[in-house]
C-alpha cells in the first residue's frame, strides 16, 4: 500500500503463547506489548503507541503505512482483537423509555442486547449525529450518525436524547 516501506527501527513478532514480542533499537526485549490508539475516536489511524506490559511507551508510530507489511499486519491483528466497539445499525426494541433500559440492537458485530443505565451514558461525539453509548458492562457502542439510522431507530433514540 505504502510507496516505500522502510524497515522499522524495531522488530515485532508473535510468540507461541500468542503475545507480541518487541525488540527495540537498543536490543531491549519486551513480551506482551500492546498497541494503543492515542485518539481512539477522533483520529484512530493517527498516532499508535506500543506499550509494554508494564504500561511504558516503547514506540510511537505516527502512521501505520510507514511500517513494513508484517509489522503492520501484526499491529492491525492485535488491534482488531483488542478493540471492541460495535456500531449500532438498528435499534430493534427497548424495554422501556425510562432507564435502566434494555435495548435490543443490531450491530456491525451481530445482534445483541445492551443495558443503558442512564441517559448520561450517551455521549455526543464531535461528528454530526455521532453518539457513543456505554452499556452497564462497560462496552461502548457507536452510532456513527443517528440521522442515518432508520426511522424507527431514530424515533426510539430521540426519546433518550
Amino acid at each position: 500500500m505504502s510507496s516505500a516501506p522502510r524497515s522499522a527501527p524495531f522488530a515485532l513478532t508473535r510468540n507461541p503463547m500468542g503475545r507480541l514480542v518487541y525488540v527495540g533499537a537498543d536490543g531491549g526485549i519486551h513480551e506482551g506489548v500492546v498497541p494503543v490508539r492515542a485518539f481512539a475516536l477522533s483520529a484512530p489511524d493517527q498516532g499508535i503507541a506500543l506499550m509494554s506490559a508494564e504500561g511504558r511507551e516503547l514506540e510511537w508510530i505516527e502512521r501505520l503505512d510507514g511500517l513494513p507489511e508484517d509489522v503492520r499486519g501484526l499491529i492491525a491483528e492485535e488491534l482488531a482483537q483488542r478493540e471492541f466497539m460495535p456500531e449500532i445499525k438498528r435499534i430493534v426494541a427497548v424495554s422501556s423509555f425510562a432507564t435502566p433500559s434494555t435495548w435490543r440492537v443490531e450491530t456491525s458485530r451481530g445482534a445483541t442486547e445492551l443495558v443503558l443505565r442512564s441517559e448520561d451514558d450517551i455521549r455526543r461525539l464531535k461528528g454530526p449525529g455521532a453518539l457513543l453509548i456505554a452499556d452497564s458492562q462497560g462496552i461502548h457502542f457507536l452510532i456513527r450518525d443517528r440521522k442515518m439510522l432508520d426511522a424507527q431507530s431514530q424515533r426510539i433514540l430521540k426519546r433518550f436524547l
Partner: peptide, 23 residues
C-alpha cells in the same frame, strides 16, 4: 474494554482463546 478473554495454554503454546462480554 468490556471484553473478557479466557486463554488455554500448556505452558509453551497458546491452545485456544475464548472471548465474552463482561456481563
Amino acid at each position: 474494554a468490556g471484553v473478557g478473554t479466557l486463554e488455554l495454554d500448556d505452558g509453551e503454546r497458546r491452545l485456544a482463546c475464548w472471548r465474552y462480554s463482561m456481563g
